[in-house]
């Protein structure tokens, strides 16, 4: 493995200052993507800045209308948190299906989000739950965060501190994943709040997207909506070794139908 320096800043500012002082630094959260990448020679940072000692990036807090999760919350912590299980069950089930158990013990919410893999699961939840991302410098609404494949609106060295999600009446995540990697070929996150629907889709395009056609429809209208009427060309659906664009569109439609099917009007 290539050589690099290793740092353990104790707070956000120290981490940020370290980043600015190094040649080609990268932050290390759980390391479930960056370390395999370094091993394979796909990344070669001069310095790894381990964020895990920054206390304010840990933990899950419940507020009246929202929930805040520290960037360093692991997938298993998300999946097993009583707050998440009770208030946003769709997110708990999403986290419990990421990769495998050993990865879920180490990989983090913030790490996954900042990596912005187009087939990652969390982005779908963030869009459908109206997430607000807080960094060491500012607040970013999720709709301005994911720019393209592996590209976010974070500045050089900016650190994602925590993520705040809206509580909703109902949430659900369904995905069809690659058997080898468990990454989503198509993942659909559905949230319903005050009877209004939001559906977001990951894995299908270069970045996560909100399905405009169903956005803010009342649940009964969304259930009746003819999904065949949607022109998916505008969403730039991927055509690759895992699945053709047509197949992905078909998956999107069936996963949405499955998600809405069991919902009642309550």
């Amino acid at each position: 493995m290539k050589k690099f320096n290793y740092h353990t800043p104790k707070n956000l500012n120290e981490g940020y200052e370290l980043f600015k002082s190094c040649d080609f630094p990268q932050y290390l959260a759980g390391g479930m993507t960056i370390l395999p990448s370094i091993k394979q020679g796909l990344a070669s940072p001069s310095d790894l800045i381990d964020l895990s000692y920054i206390n304010e990036m840990h933990g899950i807090t419940e507020h009246t209308n929202s929930i805040t999760l520290g960037g360093l919350t692991t997938h298993n912590e998300v999946a097993q948190s009583n707050i998440i299980i009770n208030k946003v069950p769709g997110l708990a089930s999403l986290a419990s299906e990421i990769a495998d158990n050993a990865v879920r013990n180490k990989g983090t919410l913030g790490g996954s989000i900042c990596n912005a893999d187009p087939a990652a699961d969390y982005p779908a939840a963030l869009i459908a739950l109206n997430a607000k991302l807080t960094t060491n410098l500012r607040e970013i609404h999720v709709k301005d965060f994911f720019l393209d494949m592996f590209e976010t609106s974070l500045y050089e060295g900016e650190i994602l501190k925590n993520i705040t999600l809206s509580k909703v009446d109902y949430s659900c995540y369904k995905k069809f994943s690659s058997q080898a990697s468990k990454y989503a070929i198509v993942g659909v996150f559905t949230s319903v709040n005050k009877k209004k629907v939001k559906v977001s889709i990951t894995g299908a395009s270069n970045k996560v997207f909100l399905l405009d056609e169903l956005d803010n429809l009342y649940l009964d209208k969304a259930k009746e909506f003819n999904l065949d009427k949607i022109n998916f060309n505008k969403y730039d659906i991927n055509n690759d070794i895992n699945a053709s664009a047509d197949y992905r569109v078909s998956l999107i439609k069936s996963l949405i139908k499955n998600s809405l099917k069991n919902l009642t009007h309550e």
Partner: peptide, 19 residues
């Protein structure tokens, strides 16, 4: 390569000793 790190399974091939 899975081992127990603080009572949790992790892949020791993807964890730095420094961590």
């Amino acid at each position: 390569c899975i081992i127990m790190l603080d009572d949790k399974c992790v892949k020791s091939c993807s964890v730095l000793l420094a961590q």
